[in-house]
Simulated assay, not measured.
Amino acid sequence: MTLQDGDLQNRIRFERKTMARDPLGGQDKPVWAEVVSVWAKATNNLAATTEAVAAGADRYREQVRFDIRPRQVDPQWRIVFRGCVFDIKSIAPSNDRSEMAIIAVAGLTNG
């Protein structure tokens, strides 16, 4: 199935960890810097969330599938979507290479 322009309704931001120089001469600190912002189709995997809530979990991990146009994406990057940080778990191009699916999970790390 080909990704249509009308499907791309969510703006996501890819970020990578870089080292920022301390202006006062202290140790360099890791910070997240924007790589690129793209349009994506976001599909929430509600089954995993529903199971966690039904089991009485206080915290759960939200899993989302992002479908985007093909581009270079490093699995070490993260995605920021609607103010929430998602760790990239898998990246898979379609068979015809016209799109790519990224599975990402929120709540694994604090940045």
Rank of each mutant, 00 (worst) to 15 (best):
P75H: 11
D96G: 09
Q76L: 11
I68V: 14
D67R: 11
V38N: 04
T43M: 08
S90L: 09
S98A: 14
R82M: 01
E34Y: 06
D87G: 09
I88L: 05
T43E: 10
R78N: 01
Q63C: 01
V80C: 00
E62N: 13
D67G: 01
E62M: 12
S90C: 04
W77Q: 10
I88H: 00
V85C: 00
C84V: 13
P93C: 03
P75Y: 13
A48R: 12
D74F: 12
G56W: 13
I68G: 00
Q76E: 15
A54N: 13
E34C: 10
T50W: 02
Q63W: 02
E99P: 04
D96P: 00
R71Y: 08
A57M: 13
V80T: 13
G56N: 10
K89C: 04
Q76S: 15
I68M: 02
N44A: 07
W39M: 13
T50G: 01
P93G: 09
A40V: 07
T50K: 11
Q76P: 02
R69F: 15
A52G: 07
A54L: 13
K89I: 11
R59G: 09
R78P: 07
M100A: 03
T43C: 03
R97A: 15
R82G: 07
T49Y: 05
Q76A: 06
V53Q: 07
F86A: 06
A55C: 05
I68W: 04
E34G: 09
P75T: 01
V85Y: 00
D87N: 12
A40L: 03
A47H: 07
R65T: 06
S98Y: 02
Q72F: 04
V38W: 05
W77S: 03
A48V: 13
A55H: 09
R97C: 02
S94C: 08
Q72S: 08
R78F: 00
T49K: 10
V53P: 03
E51A: 15
A54M: 08
R61Y: 02
V73M: 04
